[in-house]
């Protein structure tokens, strides 16, 4: 193959890519934060003693888990405004779709985590007179976070990658910038490779930190 690599213009596009990185990070942090918090409450609904609440939690999870994320994003941008009678910016539509999607997956992580804690932990706490709420807060949840840390990391990595879908709504994040640049410079090989490497550099520290945390917790236990 006689292709002549030319990575020299990569330096020129770096400022543009950097703007994309910032938008991607913003989208990532918002969706992860909203998704983890909302997912926690959805998981509580999933294990509620009240059947209608359980059904609502279950429906939410199944809805957002079993429809492709891409469709959810496009739906929130093009369809949802018709229902509410107001146009969303691409960023808000993307953030909404990815956050709800993340909430559904995190809810399942919390739920399986909570249910994996042995009954004896509840009993040990109740036997010294602790309330259910205190038991949950002081005994169950800290163990859920430890036990589910790998699953939460996977989710965080997944969310970082899913943010690239926002490019179809013309959110100016990293993927979008990469596509625009590669068609401007006619250098898709160099530019898209660079974009891939930037994603890797952005996401890898997350994976690394998580395994370091896991190692530290294993030493403690």
């Amino acid at each position: 193959m006689g292709y002549q690599f030319d990575f020299s213009m990569v330096v020129k596009i770096l400022p543009v890519l950097w703007r994309g990185v910032l938008v991607t990070l913003e989208l990532w942090v918002i969706c992860l934060a909203v998704g983890l918090v909302l997912g926690f409450f959805v998981s509580l609904a999933r294990i509620s003693p009240f059947a209608p609440v359980r059904l609502a939690g279950r429906s939410f999870v199944e809805l957002f888990r079993n429809i492709p994320a891409l469709i959810q994003l496009i739906w929130f941008f093009y369809a949802f405004p018709i229902l509410i009678g107001a146009q969303l910016t691409p960023f808000v539509a993307a953030a909404l779709g990815i956050s709800l999607n993340t909430a559904a997956f995190s809810a399942e992580i919390y739920r399986s985590g909570i249910q994996s804690i042995e009954r004896g932990q509840w009993e040990g706490a109740m036997a010294i007179g602790m309330s259910r709420a205190d038991t949950f807060r002081r005994v169950i949840l800290p163990q859920v976070f430890r036990r589910m840390l790998p699953a939460f990391t996977n989710r965080a990595v997944e969310v970082a990658k899913v943010t690239s879908l926002a490019s179809v709504l013309s959110v100016h994040e990293l993927m979008y910038q990469g596509r625009v640049l590669s068609s401007t410079y006619y250098r898709p090989l160099e530019i898209l490779t660079t974009v891939g490497v930037v994603y890797l550099v952005m996401i890898y520290p997350m994976t690394w930190t998580s395994s370091a945390l896991e190692r530290r917790m294993r030493r403690k236990a």
Partner: peptide, 10 residues
């Protein structure tokens, strides 16, 4: 006091 101790591992 339980058969399985039920201490809080964390």
């Amino acid at each position: 006091v339980f058969q399985q101790f039920n201490l809080f591992p964390h």
